[in-house]
Design a protein around this nucleic acid. Structure first.
Lengths: 103, 103
DNA sequence: TCAATTAGTCAGAAAAACATGACCACCTTA
DNA sequence: TAAGGTGGTCATGTTTTTCTGACTAATTGA
């Protein structure tokens, strides 16, 4: 009926791993905001009500490690750091949209 | 560029809500196993190494409440309870497969 | 009738996630 | 040269999740 990999001995399943990296207090928001514009740290801290440095920092790092976001430094006047969607991250947009259509 | 809903004041975003109901220690596994065959409690308890009654019970309940699984009692000899994918749950299968293809 | 299997619940402990506040280093503008 | 913004880290405490072990209740087979 389906060809879904059901080898469930923990995380040898990619969808499961991806689901894990996307779950957590601020991660879905961060992903969604990144689909609109690159993210900047203090900016997010103001936008996301109730957020905090520690958690945002961790979430950004994990999304970057998962290859969804990519961190890069802009050689501007006061030196800015941006987090933007990788190609993989961009490929996730339509999948998210399908999920939204599912409700 | 995208039509993703970016209204991030918490959970007025369906994808985020769905992501939340699918995240949690045993939920992705339960979903995947349910794509293969209906789930049975003590059965899962043996299959999923390291799992426990409490957590499985809670996860099954939440997946059922989210309309992904449906609980039904089989009027068999020793009375069995099964959890199987709802129509909504089945619609999620191809989306999961796309996520798997993404890695 | 005793043991085992079915499918759980409940209280409490342990572990993981998240938040708070202090601090740091760099740069810029007044 | 002091204040304010950039983007963080670190130690600690709180809150949430998850696990453990005891218990329940109905059914079945020996």
């Amino acid at each position: 009926m389906t060809t879904l990999n059901a080898d469930n001995t923990d995380d040898n399943c990619p969808a499961q791993a991806l689901l894990k990296t996307l779950s957590g207090k601020w991660k879905p928001q961060l992903f969604k905001l990144a689909t609109i514009a690159p993210l900047r740290f203090n900016n997010l801290l103001r936008q996301l009500d109730g957020s905090n440095k520690q958690s945002l920092s961790a979430a950004l790092k994990e999304l970057a490690e998962a290859g969804i976001l990519c961190k890069h430094t802009l050689q501007t006047k006061p030196l800015h750091i941006e987090y933007s969607l990788t190609e993989k991250g961009k490929l996730m947009i339509p999948i998210f949209q399908e999920l939204e259509g599912l409700i």
